[in-house]
Write a protein that binds this DNA or RNA. Structure first.
Lengths: 334, 334
DNA sequence: ATGAAAGCGCTAACAT
DNA sequence: ATGTTAGCGCTTTCAT
C-alpha cells in the first residue's frame, strides 16, 4: 500500500512552502496566479487530497451534524434524514449518519464514535433509550426527533402520537368495525406508549374490548413486513378481525399481504391502517390509509434547531408538535 | 459552546501524564490497577471522549471503508450497503457512506471527502460515471458493485444484466404477450445498456417490434415510483400493452398502481416485471415477478475484496458474476 | 509502571 | 505574496 502524499510533498514539488500550498487549497485568491498554477500542477501530479483528519483537527469545531437513527432501511427514518441532508447541503455542513438497529450496545458505541467527531450538533431520531448517555452531551447542541425528552433540557420534534392513533381508531370504529386488532413494534419508546394509549382510549370510549387484541412485537422493529405478515396470519388462524391498526406502514403492508394470502379482502373484509405515510403508501394496492408524519420537515426543523443558536425553545415547553394528518385511502372501509 | 476536554485535562485531574491516559484508553492492561482507576474516574467526571480526528491522524491508516452509492433511499442500494455493513461490524471496520443522487458534481465532491478520510478501501456502487476520478485512486483498494470497469484494473461484482432481462423478456413473450413495453432509468451506466440489449435481442429473436416501446427516463433514477406511475399512464392513454418490463422493482410498483388506476388488472390485462427483488417484492399485491440480485451477498463480497489483499481477481477477467434468478410471482400472466 | 518529548498533517499567526 | 513557526489532540518511542 503506497503512502499518501502530504502538503510537504506538494510544497517540495512546487518549490514553495507548505503554508502556501495550504493557502492555495483554501483561499487561493490570496496567492499570486503564478504560484497558484505551480501548486495546482503539483497537486494534480501527485493526486494530492488533504488528510481530512489533520484538517479537522486543526480547525475545530468541524462543521458536521451527527445523526443517530435506529434503522436506515426504514423509509420513515430515511426520509427524516433526507430532510436533514437537504439543509446540510444548503449550508455546507456535513452529515454523519449512524444506525443503532434498536440495539443499546450499538447505540452506545456509535454515540461514542459521534462524540469523537466533535460535531456542531446531534440529532437523535427515534429510539435512543439510554438517557444517561445523552446526559454526557452538551445539551445545547442536541435535538430529538420522534423521541421525547424527560429531562426538560432537550428540544424535541414530534407529532401528537396519542391523538393520531386515537383519531385513526375512532374513524375505524365509526365505520362499523368493532373487532379491532392493534399491532405495534415494541421498542420501548414513549411515542409508542402514547399511540397505544390513544388506541385504548378510543376503544374504551366506545365500550369496545381490546383484551387479547394488542400485539406488541419485537420483530416489528426491524422486520416489519415479515412480522406484520406473520402476526396477522396467526391472528386469522383463530379469529377474523374487522380491522387492524398498525404503527407503521411497513407493518400494514405485511398485514395486508397476510390477509390476502388467507383468502380475505382489504378493505371489504378487513380494514388496515398504517402509520408514517411513506411515499409508497399512495401507490400500494390498496392504497394505504395512514397517519402522515411530515418526515422531511421534521428533519429540516431538527437541523435548524441544532445549528441555529438563536432558535431557543421555551424550557418549560421544549417541544415542537407538528401537525399529523390522518389520510384516508383505500385500505379502510368507507 | 463549551470547550471539549482533552487528554491533558484528564491527565491533570487524575494527576498523571497524558501518555498514561492514552494507555488507559487503549491498552489498559499496561497500567497499574490503581492509576487505571484514577484515570477512569477523571474520564468519567469530565465525560472525556478522545477527539477522533487526533486519534485517526496519529494512527493512519484508520480502519474504514468508503462506500459511494447513488441513492440510499432505494432499498436495492441500501441492501448492498447492509451487506457491507455486516462484514464491517464483524471485523471492526467503520463504514463511511455517501450518496451521489446521480449527480456528477456531488459525486466528485463526495469522492474527495472520502479520499481525505484515508480509508483502507473504496466500494463504488452503481452509477459513478467519471472514470478519471477513479484513476486517481490506488486501484488496489477499489471494488465496483453493479458497475463495470473498462480499464481492466478494478474488480467488479455484477450479475449478467443482459441475460437477466433477456430471460425475463423471453418468458413474457412465451406467455403470449406481444405488445411489450420497456421502462428503464436513464443513468448512463453499462448495466442499463446491457439490460436494454437483452430486451432488444429477445424481442428481435421473436420477430417482435420494439419501436416506440422503450422508455428511457431520467425521472426513473430518483423518483421511481412516481415516474413509473406517470409513464404507464401516459402509455395507456393511447395504447394498451400486454406487458411492461421495468428495470427496478420500484418502477414496477409505480407502473402497477398506474395500470390499476386506469382500470386494468395486473396480470390479467397487463403483465409487469420488476428488477432487484427487494424485500417488499414478495409482499406486494400482486407479488412481483422480478430478477433477483443477491444484494446482501454483493455487499459482503465487495467488502472481502477490498479488505483482503490476498483475494486477487485475474486481471484478464477481473469480474465476479453472481447468479441472478428470474423469480416468477403473481404480476405476470401464467 | 509512568513520564517526557517528538511528531502525525495540517493551518493560522506572525514575520518578511 | 510567501515563508517560518507553532500547535491542534493524540499516541508512541524512549527514558526513567
Amino acid at each position: 500500500m503506497e503512502k499518501y502524499h502530504t502538503v510537504k510533498d506538494v510544497a517540495k514539488l512546487a518549490g514553495v512552502a507548505p503554508s502556501t500550498v495550504s493557502l492555495v487549497m483554501n483561499r487561493s485568491n490570496k496567492v499570486s496566479a503564478k504560484t497558484r498554477e505551480k501548486v495546482r500542477k503539483a497537486v494534480e501530479e501527485l493526486n494530492y487530497v488533504p488528510n481530512n483528519f489533520a484538517v479537522s483537527l486543526r480547525q475545530t469545531p468541524c462543521e458536521s451534524v451527527a445523526v443517530l437513527a435506529p434503522d436506515i432501511q426504514n423509509p420513515y427514518y430515511m426520509d427524516i434524514i433526507q430532510g436533514i441532508k437537504h439543509k446540510c447541503e444548503k449550508t455546507g455542513v456535513r452529515i454523519q449518519i449512524v444506525e443503532t438497529r434498536y440495539d443499546p450496545k450499538i447505540e452506545e458505541a456509535e454515540l461514542n464514535f459521534l462524540l469523537g467527531l466533535r460535531p456542531i450538533g446531534y440529532i437523535f431520531i427515534g429510539t435512543t433509550r439510554d438517557e444517561e448517555l445523552i446526559s454526557t452531551l452538551n445539551t445545547e447542541k442536541v435535538v430529538f426527533v420522534d423521541k421525547i425528552d424527560t429531562t426538560g433540557k432537550i428540544p424535541y420534534i414530534i407529532i401528537d402520537n396519542k391523538k393520531s392513533i386515537y383519531d385513526a381508531t375512532s374513524h375505524i370504529i365509526n365505520k362499523e368495525c368493532k373487532g379491532i386488532f392493534y399491532i405495534t413494534q415494541q421498542d420501548g419508546t414513549k411515542p409508542m406508549l402514547d399511540r397505544l394509549e390513544g388506541f385504548k382510549q378510543a376503544m374504551e370510549e366506545h365500550g369496545l374490548d381490546y383484551q387479547n387484541k394488542i400485539i406488541e412485537s419485537y420483530e416489528c422493529c426491524l422486520n416489519k413486513l415479515e412480522a406484520g405478515y406473520n402476526h396477522i396470519k396467526s391472528i386469522l388462524s383463530h379469529t377474523k378481525p374487522d380491522a387492524v391498526i398498525t404503527t407503521s406502514d411497513l407493518i400494514a403492508l405485511g398485514v395486508i399481504r397476510g390477509i390476502v394470502d388467507m383468502g380475505f379482502r382489504v378493505p371489504e373484509d378487513i380494514s388496515v391502517t398504517g402509520f408514517d405515510n411513506i411515499d409508497y403508501a399512495k401507490y400500494s394496492i390498496p392504497t394505504l390509509t395512514t397517519v402522515d408524519q411530515p418526515r422531511y420537515q421534521m428533519g429540516e426543523i431538527a437541523f435548524s434547531y441544532v445549528i441555529n443558536k438563536e432558535l431557543k425553545i421555551n424550557p418549560l415547553n421544549n417541544r415542537i408538535v407538528l401537525k399529523s394528518d390522518f389520510i384516508i385511502r383505500e385500505s379502510v372501509r368507507v
